[in-house]
Amino acid sequence: MIQRDDIINVIFSAMEDLNTQLPQDKKIDKRLDVQLFGGQGNLTSLSLVRFIVAVEDRMSETFEKSVVLADERALSKEHSPFRSVAALVDYIENLLSENVDA
C-alpha cells in the first residue's frame, strides 16, 4: 500500500531533479504549499513538462506503476492538480486508488 508520504517523497525527489536544471532564482522549494503552475506558480510551461515527466519516471521506478499524470481529467479540471504540491499529492493518491480498484 502506497502511503501519502511515499508520494510526497517521490514528488520532492522529482523537484530535486528539476532544480538541477533551473537557474538559482527559479528553483522550487520542497514544501507542500508551494505553488507550481498558474497564478503565483513557479514553473514555466516547459519546466512543468519536465517536472511531470520526472514525477512519472520516479513513480514508475519507486512504485513500479505506470501512470500518465497529464490525463484528460487533469487538463480539464477547473482546479488543476498542478497548481500546488499538495494538490498534486491528492491527485496522485486518487489516481493510484482508482488503479487499485480497476
Binding site: D57, S60, E61, E64, K65, S66, V67, V68
Partner: peptide, 14 residues
C-alpha cells in the same frame, strides 16, 4: 491500448 503500452515502457525501463 494505452495501458498495455505503458506497461511495455515500464518493462523497458525496469
Amino acid at each position: 491500448d494505452e495501458k498495455s503500452v505503458l506497461n511495455l515502457f515500464s518493462e523497458i525501463r525496469r
